[in-house]
C-alpha cells in the first residue's frame, strides 16, 4: 500500500510545483480563491511539504483543495519557483484516485463535472457545445443566449459557423472516426479508468448515504439531484 505522500510524489507535477516553501504568503496574496473562500494555498503547500500522512489525508478529504480556481496566478510570483496550483491538481488527482473526494461537499461535485464535461468530451469531442448550455441552468447567460439557444441553426449559420455539419469550421460535427480515436486515447492513457474510479466511489457514497432504488442499488439520478442542491454552508 503506497502512502499518500508516495502517490503525490509519483506525479511529475509535484516535482514541477514544489521545491521548498518558505511560507511568504505571496500565493495567497494573489490568489482569487483566497479572497472568497476560507482558503489559503500557502498552508496547503506547507501541509504537503510536511509529508504528514494524517494531515494530507485530512486535506484531500476536505473542501479546501477544491477551492482553487486553477488560474495559476500563484505561479509567476513565487520566490521559490513553486506553483501551488499544480500541487492542488496533484492533490485533487490523489483525492479522486483514493476516493477521498466523496468526503467533502465540493469534492463530491466531481461526479457532476464528470457527468457534464466528461460526457460532452466523449460524446461530442467538445468540452462545451451549444446544446449543453441550457438557459434554465444558466440564467446568467442572459436573454441573448436564450435567443441564440432557441435559434441555434440560424444564428450560427449567420455568423459563419458550421454547427453540427461535416467539414471544418466552428462547432462542426466531430465525426465518428475522430471520436473513436479520442475514446482509444482515453482508454490507453488512463482517462477511462479515472472516469470509472470517480463513478465507482460516487456510487458507493450514494449507496452509503441512502440514495438507492427499490433493489438497494445506488440511484444516481437521486444522487445527482442531491449534489445539485447540496448547498454551500457559507450561504
Amino acid at each position: 500500500m503506497r502512502t499518500l505522500m508516495q502517490r503525490l510524489g509519483e506525479d511529475v507535477r509535484l516535482k514541477e510545483g514544489l521545491h521548498a516553501c518558505m511560507s511568504c504568503g505571496i500565493c495567497t496574496a494573489v490568489c482569487p480563491a483566497a479572497e472568497y473562500f476560507e482558503y489559503d494555498p500557502r498552508s496547503i503547500v506547507v501541509t504537503v511539504q510536511s509529508g504528514n500522512e494524517a494531515k494530507i489525508r485530512k486535506l484531500i478529504e476536505s473542501d479546501t483543495i477544491w477551492m482553487c480556481g486553477q488560474c495559476m496566478s500563484c505561479k509567476p510570483r513565487c520566490p521559490r519557483n513553486n506553483c501551488p496550483g499544480l500541487i492542488i491538481s496533484v492533490l485533487r488527482r490523489v483525492s479522486q484516485e483514493t476516493g477521498a473526494f466523496v468526503k467533502s461537499r465540493l469534492g463530491r461535485q466531481q461526479y457532476l463535472i464528470l457527468k457534464t464535461i466528461g460526457t460532452n468530451i466523449l460524446e461530442t469531442g467538445y468540452c462545451v457545445f451549444p446544446a449543453s448550455v441550457v438557459p434554465e441552468t444558466h440564467p446568467e447567460q442572459g436573454d441573448v443566449w436564450r435567443w441564440i439557444y432557441q435559434n441555434k441553426e440560424a444564428v450560427y449559420e449567420r455568423v459563419g459557423a458550421n454547427l453540427d455539419k461535416e467539414g471544418p469550421g466552428a462547432m462542426r460535427k466531430i465525426d465518428r472516426e475522430n471520436l473513436n480515436e479520442l475514446e482509444r486515447i482515453f482508454a490507453e492513457s488512463g482517462g477511462n479508468s479515472f472516469f470509472s474510479t470517480i463513478v465507482k466511489f460516487s456510487r458507493a457514497y450514494a449507496k452509503e448515504s441512502g440514495f438507492t432504488d427499490a433493489d438497494g442499488e445506488p440511484d444516481m439520478e437521486k444522487y445527482t439531484d442531491f449534489l445539485l442542491n447540496e448547498d454551500n454552508d457559507e450561504k
Partner: peptide, 13 residues
C-alpha cells in the same frame, strides 16, 4: 430569485 445562487462577496482584509 433566479439569481439566488449568486452571492458576490470577499473576505479580503
Amino acid at each position: 430569485s433566479q439569481f439566488d445562487f449568486l452571492k458576490p462577496k470577499s473576505r479580503q482584509i
